Amino acid sequence: MGTRVSIAVVSVAVTAVALAGCAGEVSDVERAQAKVSASEDAVAEAQDAFDAASDEFCQAGESYIEALDRYGDVLNETAPTVGDVRTAGADLVEPRDDALDSAQAAVDTQADLVSAEQELADARAELAAAEAGPTGTPAPVDTAMPSASPLAPAATVDRVDQAESEFDAALSAVTDDTPLSDASELFNSAAVELEMAWLRLFADAGCLADEQQQQAEAAVRAYTTALQQELTTAGYYTGAVDGIYGPLTVEAVESLQEAQELPVTGTVDKATAEALQAELIALGGVAAQDAVASTAAVQQTLKLTGFWDGPVDGVWTPELTEAVAAFQVELGVEPTGTVDAATIAAFEQAISELQQATPTPSPSSSDG
């Protein structure tokens, strides 16, 4: 629609100049200048349309993420029923459609903006030629086709599509005979995976403008990425190292816990982190160097939010468990002191609501 409008604006301007020629001679330079002016107006109009569409996407995306977060709240109840899961799943349809529609609108208006910018470049080239005359050399004008950066990297968009498909598969698998309690962590992680994939898209699309928000989003992504890499090196994880805590990450943690004869919970606690570090240290080389990365990422994340003032050294201490639990209380999730999909999702959701001022709770430890 933006392209059609810009073409119409240019056509009207050129026609007006032509009609003016009925009363007096209009030069080629004047016609070209009129086309440039009209093209500049069209670019401004297209830019306004793109900015408005981008804002709408950010609002719709935030609404969908909040809906996913409410869905996660249902799954975190002590005894969700099949009806609860289905009803909450149905409540996601409208916000998801709104988010997808607004994303497409932003992509379309971005393409319109690129077209309008190209029309302006062509108009400026015509003006330069008109000003030079038939025997002169036109002044250099950049006529290269403008190329707009995508709203988000293709990999981020693909990850959202994958998470949507996996979530739909998990939801469709829920029947009247499904023992939700037996698969709660894996099923919950499918919802968490979807929420985190959208939060990544939300961040990459520029909806998190505040520097503190960007740092916090990067920190939590770094934790999951480090954990996935460590689990890959130890031979437990075979998925993509993408920083999204989904079912495959939960399964890998469970495999580690089973191999180490730990309680199989799918969540990372002090014992699980230490067991993983011990395996990596035993492997030696680069694996040993990376053995503390995920725990250090937990410490860095808590430090950014004001819940940890101990060292970022990759050592999981009782004080770190207390800090994680205190952070979970603030997030409104069960204060287990372990890092699970629900905690990461709650933190990601909190990122989108952060203000300039950081939280100022009393840290759990001052000596690490």
Rank of each mutant, 00 (worst) to 15 (best):
I281D: 15
D242W: 09
W308C: 04
T87Y: 03
E322W: 01
L227C: 08
I281H: 09
A90D: 05
T238V: 08
V329S: 08
T265P: 02
Y71P: 00
V286S: 12
A183F: 12
Y237F: 15
P361G: 11
V114Q: 15
A271C: 00
V174A: 06
G136Y: 07
S362N: 10
G239E: 07
A32N: 10
M145R: 15
A152I: 09
G133W: 07
P80S: 08
A46D: 05
V160Y: 03
T272P: 00
E62R: 14
P361H: 09
N188S: 14
E334H: 01
G332M: 01
T338Y: 01
A20Q: 12
V82C: 08
A129E: 13
Q260K: 14
A144T: 13
L280K: 13
A38P: 00
A345N: 09
V286M: 04
S115P: 00
V174R: 10
T295F: 07
L304Y: 12
T317L: 09
W308P: 09
A191W: 05
S54N: 09
G337I: 03
D158L: 08
D142H: 10
V9E: 04
A190P: 04
Y245V: 03
A79I: 13
S366M: 08
T156N: 06
V220G: 07
Y237Q: 06
L248V: 03
E279S: 15
D340T: 04
